[in-house]
Nucleic acid binder design. Structure first.
Lengths: 341, 341
DNA sequence: TTGTACGCGTTATCAA
DNA sequence: TTGATAACGCGTACAA
């Protein structure tokens, strides 16, 4: 029977007749320790089966080398790619990533925020829950100089780092593309509150209409309860049932765009000629639906990488009086079959 | 300027003229502490802005309440759903999840395993890297009674918990379904080593052919370098170029199945009548491709949940002499348009 | 019901 | 270049 005992630097020190401080330093290649000692220590550490205990080190040094990530969910392609980007950049720097899902619930978000703090994460990356209006629960990180980065779904009035795309510009571009394809009656689906990214995309849509001299028609703007195929199908049916149906649709997500195409196909409405469609995100499904869905690229992995790097950089710097700048990443119109006519 | 100082149980103790042990207990609703004291302690803790330090608690108690998750990648729909399941079950039990990607590299997997151990995670859930043949790097968890669960891609010869589907049976079912639809020449794409799940699916395919009295033809089995659209398209072209092309294809992944359908469509080969196709996983894209791809359901979230629950249960039990059982989850044939004729 | 006192494994400070 | 020793913040026997 293998009675396991934890080998500590103390055990190594005893065996080698050295001080624990020497062992600690030797294991980290501290310059003040002779090469000979370093080698000797590392060798016996290995022999004895020594395993560093990050908990003890973190407690003492007050540095956990862990980045907390708090997202609405992780199964959306955009968000899993975002995590991937965060994880890759963190791993490269020797940082771990601890992940939590708010499931778009404000309450869960508040609780998880506490939990992240209790774990004394070195930094936090967060995309806000749909429900969240108030961001006081993040104040604790500010108070402790824990770098905090909001990504994609960011608060309006809270001075922190932010990594975003220009949702207004993207909405404008998407709508403008439809206009350039000759669409005159462009519909839009929207969702969420006036603080959401969807609101900004909608504002872009409205601005593009205006700039093109197209009058906005209320019946062409449909508000959804949530981002699902079902909700989008309902909306599409409603739009196509209009006396004067739209000849183009900009949906602020690919699930919605795909659903609109499917609905149009079912009803015999030709895409793109009778109805041009453009989505958002460049999810895998957008490239599978027939006809392929035009979309707006959303650089998920890059945004994750950028967020992590901001944290890492901030940890290296003096931490005080930092400028909490906003990082904008590019989006592009990806023209595919569903809008090309 | 807000000079931040950490409020500890010691500070609370001083303020209330109580012992730290009393504070510690009161904050955890220990039964030996009077209600009055508990209330008083909690109140002043809040007032003083006390925040528990999980690091210190973990160091002391040797319990981190953290589950380490080590996966090849997290962007595949199956794996992100798996994580979601793990995260939901863990969160419910007050456990955190720390996530790492091996990117299918054996070397990275070894390193990350060390890192997980150094963080003294309470349990580990792992799906092996494609490259991994040897699992000695997990021995450290065995030696320390850290519950270890392999999920989906599990090692053949290593006595731990395993949460899997029956890949052989699933491959058999998929192939058999095609046979039931009248297919006589069924092709199969495969990938990876003889230790992979793909190998088992292939064995199921072969067994189904045999049981149906269909002779296996070598030219109908195509080996891919990796699971990508491009590789599958190459394979599909090769198959359709045959003098005697197949009338059915079983692909052990939906990306492959979708790609085969796309290739067939391009070439004017009718799916399902000229070529029936069935995939694997029930990824979102399988339900978007036209015609819809029949597939094998793969209960990702359930598997994640089951894995986490095994860890949690194991942590509660005596930890010694446990039976390291294998948990099999169900798969089903999901018949859609691509194979129905 | 509450208090005393020590240890978890490491790092940091100061001294040698 | 190395050593002695005190923290880091909390939990837990054991005592009161």
């Amino acid at each position: 029977m293998k009675e396991h005992v934890e080998v500590t630097i103390y055990d190594i020190a005893e065996k080698l007749n050295l001080a624990t401080s020497t062992i600690s330093r030797a294991l980290k290649d501290h310059h003040s320790i002779s090469k000979k000692t370093i080698e000797k220590v590392k060798k016996t550490a290995k022999e004895m089966g020594y395993r560093p205990n990050n908990l003890a080190a973190s407690l003492r040094s007050k540095k956990t080398k862990t980045i907390g990530v708090l997202l609405p969910t992780i199964t959306q392609p955009f968000l899993s790619s975002l995590i991937s980007g965060i994880e890759i950049a963190s791993q490269k720097a020797g940082y771990n990533v601890i992940i939590m899902q708010s499931h778009d619930s404000y309450e869960e978000e508040v609780n998880l925020t506490q939990s992240l703090y209790n774990n004394r994460v070195s930094g936090v990356i967060c995309s806000l829950a749909m429900q969240t209006q108030n961001t006081d629960h993040f104040q604790v990180f500010m108070d402790n100089n824990t770098p905090l980065v909001f990504v994609d779904r960011v608060p309006k009035h809270f001075s922190t780092f932010r990594v975003v795309i220009d949702n207004f510009a993207a909405g404008y571009k998407a709508t403008n593309h439809l206009i350039s394809q000759g669409c005159k009656r462009i519909a839009h689906l929207t969702v969420g509150s006036e603080f959401s990214i969807y609101h900004e995309r909608k504002m872009g849509y409205l601005a593009a209409l205006k700039d093109a001299g197209l009058t906005f028609e209320d019946e062409l703007l449909v508000r959804l309860k949530e981002v699902t195929y079902e909700e989008a199908e309902k909306a599409a049916n409603k739009l196509l049932d209009l006396k004067n149906p739209p000849d183009g649709v900009f949906t602020p997500g690919d699930i919605l765009g795909v659903s609109v195409i499917q609905c149009a196909k079912k009803r015999g409405v030709k895409v793109p000629n009778a109805l041009a469609v453009i989505g958002f995100n460049n999810d895998p499904i957008s490239n599978i639906i027939d006809p392929n869905l035009s979309t707006i690229t959303h650089p998920a992995e890059k945004m994750g990488k950028a967020s992590a790097e901001i944290i890492l950089k901030s940890l290296k710097s003096s931490k005080k009086d930092e400028v909490k700048e906003i990082t904008f990443l590019n989006t592009e119109v990806l023209v595919r079959e569903s809008s090309l006519r």
